[in-house]
């Protein structure tokens, strides 16, 4: 559905996208995971025909993004990073406008947006500017879907939205996928990676890994422990000096401790506890941890 071959794009001296190649299959939710400034938006703008690549080629739904851009614009749905709605128009007016811009009507494709639109329909005469972040996001999604696109590009849809709305949003994406829609989504939130079918880990314009979320975490081949004590700052400092430690970083309210060598968990945890107590840490808590996409991202970034 989306094929990218050796795409590069620079702004002055900054290489925003650097020799990226990837393929997205039809009916897949593909996640582009990376921090702010990784080049996700630039790549999205190239795929949605808004920017021309310096090098390489890309096709979306069989159409070249450079030469076939006019036809392609009929077939893609695009939701930019900022909520690109008309704040002074009502929910209903926004939807109507985007429908007629694509030469269709709300009634014609109502089925597609219905599950999402019913949630904001009670507020249909409210101005878009007065909606909450989560509702704006739903409206923007409706507007991007109203012309029944083949591919949906969502650039950081979760930014500025509360966790509950984010979860609802992902449920919607999953149900859209069952209708055969291909979805390419970018996000800086590592926890959202697990919700995609496949992800590309993106950093400084380059792809570090492409795989299913399970494949990514499965490739993590070091023992990992979650450790906690009464003093996080000192804990991180002390753990980094311990023998046999590969890496240690804050992870929520725990410190994630990556060991260099495999060892029986019980024995390793005992050793860590003894070490921490010798450094007079209180309330020490240690447990084995499953590697998450974020752990993999951090590992890949260091290599």
């Amino acid at each position: 559905m989306v094929e990218i071959e050796h795409i590069s794009k620079s702004y002055d001296t900054l290489k925003a996208v650097d020799d990226v190649s990837l393929t997205v299959a039809r009916g897949e939710i593909f996640g582009l995971i990376g921090p702010d400034g990784a080049g996700k938006t630039t790549l999205f703008r190239i795929l949605t025909t808004l920017l021309l690549p310096d090098e390489g080629r890309a096709t979306v739904d069989g159409l070249d993004v450079v030469r076939g851009y006019k036809q392609l614009r009929q077939r893609v749905g695009y939701m930019p990073g900022r909520f690109s709605l008309y704040q002074d128009l009502s929910v209903e007016e926004n939807l109507e406008f985007f429908a007629s811009v694509f030469g269709t009507s709300v009634a014609e494709n109502y089925d597609l947006i219905a599950p999402i639109y019913v949630q904001i329909e009670p507020f249909k005469s409210r101005r878009a500017g007065a909606l909450s972040g989560g509702m704006k996001q739903k409206l923007a999604l409706c507007c991007a879907l109203i012309h029944k696109p083949e591919v949906l590009f969502l650039d950081e849809p979760g930014t500025g939205v509360d966790p509950v709305s984010r979860k609802e949003f992902w449920d919607m994406l999953r149900s859209l996928r069952t209708q055969g829609l291909t979805i390419v989504v970018s996000t800086p939130y590592m926890d959202e990676a697990a919700l995609c079918d496949r992800v590309a880990l993106f950093q400084k314009g380059r792809i570090m890994a492409i795989d299913t979320p399970e494949g990514i975490t499965g490739a993590f081949d070091h023992p990992l422990y979650a450790v906690r004590s009464d003093n996080m700052y000192r804990l991180l400092k002390d753990l980094r000096q311990m023998e046999g430690v590969a890496d240690c970083y804050a992870f929520g309210e725990y410190a994630h401790l990556k060991m260099q060598q495999d060892a029986p968990a019980e024995k390793a945890m005992k050793g860590i506890r003894a070490y921490l107590e010798s450094k007079s840490h209180q309330d020490v808590e240690i447990s084995p941890a499953e590697a998450s996409v974020e752990d993999c991202f951090i590992e890949l970034m260091k290599n």
Binding site: R45, T48, T49, L50, K70, R73, Q74, V76, Y78, P80, G81, R82, F83, S84, L85, Y86, Q87, F98, V101, F102, G103, C143, A144
Partner: peptide, 13 residues
């Protein structure tokens, strides 16, 4: 400025 131009451009207009 509001980013709506981006959406208008990625449309058949």
């Amino acid at each position: 400025e509001l980013g709506t131009m981006e959406v208008l451009l990625v449309s058949p207009l």
